[in-house]
């Protein structure tokens, strides 16, 4: 058969290496070569490299089906999920680096877990309410359109690709990033959340929040779940400005909006 005659490509992986347990060894790039196989993803390729060529190679995969968000990495300079990236879509030489903006654990492994827990703690990323659950009561109704809208934002898998690809996050470590703003938007639109507009404004209005964004929107390009981050951004910004006007508070963003 034709597909058997065609010679498989020899892929050349240039992989960033650094083990913090060996602080005297500076970071370096290491090349590995493997033969390409059908439907080969970076999940399969990296495991093959580790099991056959260098068993010390560090990387993170959990679900290997693009739902857990563990395997964000820079693939030829662009943030992507390793499991979702097929080698067939890449050139023969593939450079892999850890995601920037997150603490490095070793090689391709980065500490997104602590970053995201920190983000959730900062924006109170949960349903804020006055009352506790009553086990005897039935659920409060919600129209399905609202549920769908919340789900659309809730789909974020916290892989960190949008943060790694963000020009602001790369220079301003406290910037919430698209994922943080999306998390805020998710709770803003949820009728079960009882936060006032004013309290939302306090969360999003500083330079680490929605007004820190300079609008390059790389987040929207690289999101592996195709979240509508551009819409999220304008939604949060609109809500923030609206609450600013209703509060009458003086703020650079308000002056800017009034000028416009």
């Amino acid at each position: 058969m034709a597909e058997n005659i065609k010679t498989a490509r020899i892929l050349k992986f240039d992989i960033f290496r650094y083990n913090p347990a060996e602080p005297d060894k500076p970071p370096y790039m290491q090349r590995f070569e493997i033969e390409e196989a059908p439907y080969m993803s970076l999940f399969l390729a990296l495991n093959q490299i580790r099991e056959e060529q260098d068993s010390s190679l560090q990387f993170d995969f959990v679900c290997r089906s693009a739902v857990c968000g563990s395997c964000g990495m820079m693939v030829n300079g662009r943030p992507a999920l390793g499991c979702q990236t097929l080698t067939a879509d890449l050139p023969e030489v593939i450079a892999l680096h850890p995601l920037p903006t997150f603490a490095l654990i070793g090689d391709l492994s980065v500490d997104t877990g602590r970053w995201f827990r920190g983000m959730v703690d900062r924006v109170n990323g949960w349903i804020e309410r006055e009352t506790e659950f009553d086990r005897a009561s039935i659920e409060a109704p919600m129209d399905n359109e609202t549920a769908d809208k919340i789900y659309e934002a809730d789909r974020c898998i916290e892989c960190g690709c949008c943060v790694a690809g963000c020009a602001v996050a790369n220079v301003r470590p406290d910037f919430l990033g698209a994922t943080g703003l999306n998390r805020i938007a998710r709770f803003m639109m949820d009728p079960r959340d009882q936060r006032s507009e004013q309290s939302w404004f306090e969360v999003v209005s500083d330079a680490e929040g929605v007004f820190g964004c300079i609008g390059m929107m790389a987040c929207d390009d690289v999101c592996p779940k195709d979240l509508p981050l551009l819409e999220v951004y304008s939604y949060v910004r609109r809500k923030a400005v609206a609450s600013l006007f209703s509060s009458g508070e003086d703020h650079p963003a308000r002056r800017e909006a009034e000028k416009a």
Partner: peptide
């Protein structure tokens, strides 16, 4: 029955009846 409603209370966007 209680657990699924508690999850609704905690924010799960369950698909709803139309």
């Amino acid at each position: 029955r209680v657990a699924v409603r508690e999850m609704a209370y905690w924010g799960v966007p369950w698909t709803r009846a139309t």
